[in-house]
């Protein structure tokens, strides 16, 4: 699932694969940054976004439910507060508001999960 990445990223080891629940998320700490990491095991995919929901500035996206929407099965996460949903691919808000999440590349080697930091 790694997209072609233009910018050189530093791969930071964040946790083991079984630290993040299946088909759910968890929050990892990288320096002072909070990153929401999602284990989309139903599709064998991993995603990472900022943990902060831009709607009310709450550090909670990792606690949201994930799922998909539309004919293309766009993967998404729903904020636990007001159920604003965001694409896990683009970080775009899918509930019609102009919010944008930062997304991060993720790679898994063995049972180790790495997040790419610019």
């Amino acid at each position: 699932m790694e997209a072609v990445i233009d910018v050189a990223v530093e791969w930071v080891f964040v946790c083991k694969t079984d630290d993040i629940p299946q088909n759910g998320g968890g929050c990892v700490k990288v320096g002072d940054e909070q990153i929401a990491l999602y284990n989309f095991s139903r599709r064998g995919e991993w995603y990472a976004t900022q943990n902060l929901c831009p709607h009310k500035q709450q550090m909670v996206l990792s606690r949201g439910m994930i799922g998909s929407t539309g004919d293309t099965c766009e993967p998404k996460v729903a904020c636990p507060f007001h159920k604003k949903t965001f694409s896990l691919l683009s970080g775009e808000c899918l509930t019609g508001e102009e919010y944008q999440l930062k997304t991060y590349p993720v790679k898994v080697e063995g049972d180790k999960v790495y997040v790419g930091i610019e």
Partner: peptide, 17 residues
């Protein structure tokens, strides 16, 4: 997961879960 496999489609969402 069994419910989704038997009776649903896609990957689910914050309504059906």
């Amino acid at each position: 997961d069994a419910a989704l496999d038997h009776f649903g489609k896609g990957d689910g969402c914050e309504l059906c879960k």
